[in-house]
């Protein structure tokens, strides 16, 4: 019998090594569905999933929507622009209103860290965190892990280098927690202004020098650099940023042979990654997208029996 012990998926932090293995195994089994002529199975028939997106997101939202559709769930999409949020309704009021529609699962993306926790504590439905502020993006880390495991056959003992704006990245946090938990050696690298305090305590080695991070890496993960960071005095210019932290073919030579390049998207070609690298055969950026659907199907499937469980607090 296989299940996630908690009602919600709020963070990688709450997952055990076994939980992560279970999601990945289940996702692997589900990949076959997307290869069929009829890409639909009835596992979530009669279940209602609400996609509650307070932040614009095309990729994550489409990925979740596709996953839900392939599992035959009924879907309700609710986005900030069309919602009453602009009319001053609080998140809790919104959530309670939605809860009255008796959904089984609520998928939430929100600009505030912890918003999914608030929802999870107040709602009977299972809550899936689709990205909350600078906190976590657990399904992204799970799909990254699936991608790496498919390519490398394992996670343990690999060297993963995460490069870029670590401070503002929920992906960096979730990936660090996950890969560290699974026994990989995680390095994060970026300008000191974009590395948050005590990040090493999450389980990563921290460096400001890209060569050190990439050397001998099996996986190089590039993060998007928001253009605003320049105005906020985190970096002098995107040009200098690329010179110091951009991924070029030349820099890739420091990585292990057969190393792969990942990016959670959307990419800034020429800012954090050279076009030739993004399109190279060692780039698995598109596999990540495909694995995203299978991973989200797995998460939805595994949580779909859990709504109504006691709201879970995150373990520390």
């Amino acid at each position: 019998m296989a299940s996630l012990s908690q009602k919600d998926l709020l963070s990688i932090e709450q997952l055990s090594v076994d939980d992560i293995g279970l999601v990945l195994d289940t996702a692997e089994a589900l990949r076959e569905v997307s290869a069929r002529a009829v890409k639909k199975v009835p596992a979530l028939r009669g279940k209602t999933v609400i996609n509650l997106f307070f932040e614009p997101s095309t990729r994550t939202r489409s990925s979740f929507e596709l996953a839900e559709k392939r599992l035959s769930a009924d879907i309700l999409n609710f986005s900030a622009s069309s919602s009453s949020v602009t009319k001053g309704e609080t998140l809790l009021d919104t959530a309670r209103n939605l809860e009255a529609m008796a959904p089984d699962i609520i998928v939430i993306r929100h600009a505030s860290a912890g918003a999914p926790h608030l929802l999870g504590t107040e709602c009977r439905s299972s809550v899936v965190n689709a990205g909350d502020g600078m906190h976590e993006h657990p399904t992204q880390a799970l799909l990254d892990a699936l991608t790496v495991r498919s390519m490398k056959g394992r996670l343990e003992g690999l060297k993963l280098a995460i490069i870029g704006d670590i401070s503002h990245s929920r992906v960096a946090r979730s990936d660090t927690l996950l890969f560290h938990k699974m026994g990989a050696e995680v390095w994060v690298c970026g300008p000191p202004t974009l590395i948050p305090a005590d990040f090493h305590l999450l389980g990563a080695r921290v460096t400001g020098f890209m060569e050190e991070a990439i050397e001998g890496a099996d996986v190089v993960m590039m993060l998007r650099l928001q253009n605003e960071r320049q105005n906020e005095a985190f970096i002098p210019s995107t040009r200098e940023y690329f010179n110091l932290y951009g991924l070029s073919r030349e820099r890739m030579r420091g990585a292990r042979k057969n190393a792969i390049v990942m990016h959670p998207g959307p990419m800034n070609r020429g800012v954090e990654i050279e076009s030739e690298v993004a399109d190279a055969d060692y780039s698995v950026i598109l596999d990540q997208v495909a694995n995203g659907v299978a991973t989200r199907m797995a998460v939805l499937y595994l949580l779909s029996g859990n709504s109504g469980l006691k709201p879970g607090r995150e373990s520390r």
Binding site: A113, G133, M134, R170, R173, A197
Partner: peptide, 13 residues
């Protein structure tokens, strides 16, 4: 407070 918890929780420190 800026430190381990702000980093872990993704809250501005």
């Amino acid at each position: 407070h800026e430190g381990y918890w702000s980093t872990k929780l993704g809250l501005r420190g």
